[in-house]
Amino acid sequence: MSEDVAGVSQKILTGIRLNDEEWAELLTTRDLISLGMAADAARRRRHGDRTTFVQIVEVPVVTNATLGSLPEQAREIRLTGRPETTAMAIERVEALVSVGGGLPVTGFNLTDLFELSGRDSGRLVQVLVSLREAGLGLVGEVWAEGPLPAETAFTVLREGGMSAARLTLGESTGDEALSLIRRIASWSDAGSVCRCLAPLPRSLASPPTTGYGDLRQVALARLLVDNIESIQVDWSSYGPKLAQVALTFGADDVDAVASVGHDERGWRRSPGEEIRRNITAAGFTPMLRDGCFKAVKS
């Protein structure tokens, strides 16, 4: 491990705040491996060799598509996209819960719900209460930065009796995203309402992010953000190759694994087998969870 990065990482691991010079060292170091080693140590201290994953079924919120038969492997029904109204959101949750066979139904970006509530946090609390009563298991995503300030978002979630599956960096990328991670680390109550931090961009950047950039972001998230339990990578957005390497750089949860494969190439290529094989090959023990982060016995 390089002296500089090792020293800085050690400081983080022992809870000492970084000065700006040390922070700059982490942002610019070519020594990605030292960063990865420190993040892996932090991750193993917290989660051992366990890596959780969830297989999901996605349902677009704005269509009236019915669920059809639920794939046996699905452990979460996820509403995707932005509803046109809060009434539509509640209706769709009710509809899916009624046919979901007890699987957790999750969905929505809290920022979208805030907009649909006329940017009124009091109304947003009411919407969250209604969604919870309709059966929503978790709000899908909370942006750490956006029209709804994070501190307000956490308060609203608590008052609405809801938690969020993940805190994301919203539209921040590059150095801005890294600075945001540093700020998230100081939000002591983030972990009480957000199950994990998903530190990689949710939409395609131009130019695209790089492997170094992505892994630096994942590693720094694990090293700095002690106040959120899990660091999550998205299997479908980032693909098996990057997502698997991210597990050795601090991530401990894999989101959005498909329930059904796109081909008929046999059991070894089914998404469930593929993710287990990847987690094992990365040196971890796979553990299936449901959409509300409860372990599922295989």
Binding site: L32, P208, T210, G211, Y212, G239, K241, L242, V245
Partner: peptide
């Protein structure tokens, strides 16, 4: 065979 991201990470390995 690995794509651009893991291709780049090869430089660290």
């Amino acid at each position: 065979t690995q794509g651009g991201k893991v291709g780049q990470l090869s430089l660290a390995f």
